[in-house]
């Protein structure tokens, strides 16, 4: 029973901390570009301001348009709850594995694209079509990277994966190197960061995620933006906890948990720095080059799986 309480507390903390993660990356990026930048806690103010405002609905909006923010937000929370953050000893881990996680993300994306097309504006449809195009290329690569992990530890359960990886002797696994690289490339594409999408712009011809949520306002917009920040945090957590699994608590002792919470915060901050630097030194790609980028991610994940089969067993 305490396990479930811990799981709920952990998910709650991640949901609350997600805007801070997004704000941290944004602030670092501004500093790197010699701008002053909004403070890292600015997203909280934005969300608060948006939630106080009235919702303006288009005449053509159907119930799906109104339901979508709640569905997207809650599905993202469900996805977050399956990822081990500070401990692997959680009962929720038995309920969902990585394939379910990819399924949750796909469900959220499905409603996001429906919402984009619902009102019938040109931008929404364009954004939805782009989002789905990129997702259809990113999802196989993501699954392939997860399968490589799963074959390595003989389990698709994220808790088991992290637990086993953390307890192993230090060994150089070519398959894990490749699948981590594939995972990072996919994560950048899925969370709509540079070079696939630019989260900071409303430039009509290049935007993907912003185009979908263009018609939203008020608390709906707040939920959509919060869900996007959660998704960024979710992928960051996946990356830091799978690639660097050391530091995740293997027991439910409070002292270990506190240490693990500190370590995971540090890892997330470092990952945010890496993300900010990579976004500063890169330019956004043309949309038609995205398939090449995701093709590289797929080939990396595939090579990871093949080098597991050929080299490691």
């Amino acid at each position: 029973m305490t396990g479930f309480l811990w799981a709920i507390a952990q998910t709650f903390c991640v949901v609350l901390a997600a805007p801070l993660m997004a704000g941290w990356v944004k602030w670092l990026k501004c500093r790197l570009q010699n701008r002053k930048g909004p403070p890292p806690w600015q997203p909280y103010r934005d969300l608060l301001r948006l939630s106080r405002k009235h919702v303006v609905l288009a005449d053509t909006a159907s119930p799906i348009f109104r339901m979508a923010p709640y569905i997207v937000f809650s599905v993202t929370i469900l996805a977050v709850s399956t990822v081990p953050v500070i401990t692997v000893q959680l009962p929720v881990a038995a309920l969902a594995d990585v394939i379910a996680l990819v399924g949750f993300l796909a469900l959220g994306r499905f409603f996001l694209s429906l919402a984009g097309m619902d009102v019938g504006t040109a931008f929404g449809g364009m954004g939805s079509s782009r989002e789905v195009t990129i997702a259809s290329l990113a999802e196989p690569a993501l699954l392939m990277a997860f399968f490589t992990l799963a074959m390595n530890v003989s389990s698709t359960n994220l808790s088991t994966v992290i637990c086993q990886l953390a307890q192993r002797d230090i060994t150089l696994y070519p398959s894990l190197i490749f699948s981590s690289m594939g995972l990072i490339l996919v994560a950048i594409a899925e969370t709509g960061r540079i070079p696939i999408d630019n989260p900071a712009t409303h430039l009509e011809l290049t935007m993907i995620h912003e185009a979908i949520i263009l018609e939203y306002s008020g608390r709906h917009l707040a939920l959509m933006e919060w869900a996007a920040m959660l998704k960024l945090t979710l992928f960051s957590l996946l990356i830091v906890n799978v690639i660097v699994p050391w530091g995740v608590a293997l027991t439910l002792v409070p002292g270990d948990l506190a240490l693990a919470a500190l370590i995971v915060t540090g890892k997330l901050l470092v990952w945010g720095m890496i993300l900010a630097v990579s976004e500063t030194i890169q330019a956004k790609m043309r949309l038609f080059r995205a398939p090449q980028y995701l093709g590289l991610a797929f080939i990396l994940s595939l090579l990871g799986m093949m080098s597991h089969i050929i080299l490691e067993v």
């Binding site: 192993r168 002797d169 060994t171 150089l172 696994y173 070519p174 398959s175 490749f178 090579l303 080098s307």
Partner: peptide
């Protein structure tokens, strides 16, 4: 792979990188 020494593991990783 875990039963090999570290230099041998590096050779295997280099082999995978050559394939890449």
């Amino acid at each position: 792979i875990a039963s090999l020494s570290l230099p041998e593991q590096v050779v295997l990783t280099l082999a995978a990188l050559i394939l890449l």
